[in-house]
Design a protein around this nucleic acid. Structure first.
Lengths: 232, 232, 232, 232
DNA sequence: CATGAATGAGAATTCATTCAT
DNA sequence: GATGAATGAATTCTCATTCAT
């Protein structure tokens, strides 16, 4: 089963800092930079992007106010970086899943696990992406929107492959199916973030790897809510 | 099948019914008040709550700046009012659905149709709710959060009733099922709002009553994506 | 001993409404007008002129918002009217005292009693004059300042007469003496208004006619704080 | 005789000591901060607290608008700070006077001189305190009221000590005596600030050290206005 | 006279961004 | 790199005054 090492994915700065670094086991630059990103994730998650002040981020990161502007040109770039550096890791992982020769069920379960696990390992980041970036995406550069769309496309490809293989019903619109799948996952997470509804397990916050939730969501999506006979 | 007359539920005035009525029974107070709410919905939907300026709302509503503060204590109260006055209409309708003696499938389809139809009839309002309120309210306004939770509870009740009646699989967590259902709907709408993915019909914006989408979403949720002995 | 009927003086509208009215035992005009003035006195006394809103005055007076502007051209005119209509009564009374052939001691005691009694009967009005009008007087029309100055002049005349009669020490500047006298009275009142210091009697608010305080203040001013021998 | 070095007590910078010092040991922070306080004193004294705009203060201080909010949370805090930082200096000085073993007469004369000298050295500040703070504080800020009350208490203590020593008449209420004393001083200053009455000297504005006024006021208060066996 | 909705200029406050040290 | 003071444009909110009914 394909997995994504979220911790590493979270520390990767591939997109923002594509130059290979000689030796930055702990170069001060990356140190401070990461601290800013982590602090920003926490503050954005807590207060929302618009209510968060740059000074809050600096305080949370325990660095000087002005230093934020050494590493980022403006507040928005912090948000964009949070998104890009980590979303690309997710896309790569999902892409790997989609290209693998696992069964459709396994693929979807892996994607669900990737996403749910992201919330477990980095709840702040997921909150920011779910609650702020998608909301801001209307205005920000269309590249961001496209990046979000890419996740849809990857999942839609899995669906289409399943339909081509005769495993999934061919009458269903892949786009709709994909929205249903990702939407289900998103709201499962959101309802936990916001504590909207109690679920039988793992309510209220991130806990151990939540493969059972992933399995249940995929189960619902694949086999439906109805009992076996499914008369109509 | 239970339906919600969104136009009435919205207490719409100018925007939905732009023809000036001869017998404008509306008191002048509520007239202007509604105009502000409609204008705010439009502006928030277009620019997002935080980017929208109160002066924009006033201009859009064709009223004086200060009048906004005659009817609302501040900008946030406008957002809260938009949500509350209309969400309660939705809750009432869903409650009616839940209490009816239709089949589970019919109930879920009605709920889906209610929600999707809201987007068709009042895209601005749905955009505001989906993009700003559901993501901004967070922890700030517990009343708002509770109102959102109530929708979950109503749907969860439908699910539980279905399980009790033996129509729905008893092994599934109703909370999770309900998140999956509403999440699917939400992302279907969001992906249209943001134009994230093309679906076979009704992509990119509101169109005719979208019962087919409702039916498909419920179909997926009830019978699953997988092929099998699920005649329709 | 000369006394001023504050209650009547307070209801006199001589300055602002010099035309003899045919019959206004209770004409609605004067009724509302007085209510506004009373309400304004109360609100100004409580919140201060600048913090008081016209709407507060209207609410306190139990009349419609806009009606205030039927009777007064603007907020400042309310303040001016409060001052003028009632200050002129005080000036007349003090003038009567000054012209009388009572002794200096009696005159000063009467003036002190007039002022202290004003506070007893109409604490709001005195608060407004003491706390707001003198403060605003810097900017408002100089006539107001002159009206305040007239009280000084009347008292100064009493002092000068006393000096001419050989009753008061001729070496003292009448202006200074007069400031000391009125200042003492003012701070006695203010310290009660603000509850700054506890005095042996009548602390905290208006009570019965406070002739004893008047007598004590004049006693201090005339005979000094020192014990009889007054050695130096 | 105990004196208060107002210039030092004021921690004055630019206005009182306009010559740029070579060794400006002042940290930049306190430098700007003081400039704001001095500018605010000037503007408040000229226009009154409520009419003064924060932008006026910034212009007067020759700094950027927003910097005011770097040092003070809001306009009111500027007023409060002006009062507190300097009133405490006065209180300390008066306290020193009260504790000294000078005669009652000397003590009161010193207090009068302290207060009158404050007006001579820092007319702006005194105007602000007299015209805005003492009349605005009211019931709003209990801390401020308490600070004002402390002056009363210190003076009342001097009076009581004098009574205990048999120098002052025991029949007089110390609170009243103290109000009379401070009130006399206050109105002497106010009448100069507002140019209400001409006194034989020092009319209309601050001039040389005004010990003679202090002596006269104390003379009046101690020995009274009346002629009699009061050699001096 | 009464009413209270409507108007809009004015002022406070916020905070992203720049810059001197 | 680091610091945090300095800047000022942008916006919200207030409230005296006007006006239509």
């Amino acid at each position: 089963m394909i997995e994504l090492d979220w911790t590493r994915a979270m520390e990767s700065t591939a997109l923002a800092d594509p130059l290979p670094r000689m030796d930055r086991a702990q170069s001060p630059r990356s140190d401070k930079r990461e601290r800013i990103l982590d602090a920003a994730s926490a503050v954005f998650a807590r207060d929302g992007y618009h209510r968060a002040r740059v000074s809050d981020i600096a305080r949370e990161a325990n660095i000087a106010y002005g230093l934020v502007y050494h590493y980022f040109t403006n507040k928005e770039e912090i948000l964009r970086t949070i998104f890009e550096e980590r979303w690309s890791g997710l896309l790569d992982a999902v892409d790997g899943v989609a290209r693998s020769d696992a069964s459709v069920e396994e693929k979807l379960e892996s994607v669900a696990a990737l996403i749910l696990d992201g919330y477990r390992v980095r709840p702040d980041w997921v909150k920011v992406v779910v609650l702020d970036i998608l909301r801001t995406a209307r205005f920000a550069d269309p590249g961001q929107l496209r990046a979000v769309g890419r996740l849809f496309q990857l999942v839609a490809r899995i669906v289409r492959d399943g339909q081509a293989a005769g495993v999934l019903r061919p009458d269903l619109d892949p786009g709709l199916a994909c929205s249903a799948f990702l939407g289900a996952l998103e709201l499962v997470i959101t309802s936990r973030v916001l504590d909207l509804v109690e679920t039988r397990s793992a309510a209220g916050g991130p806990s151990e790897p939540d493969r059972s939730t992933a399995r249940t969501v995929v189960d619902i999506l694949l086999h439906g809510l109805q009992t076996g006979a499914r008369p109509r």
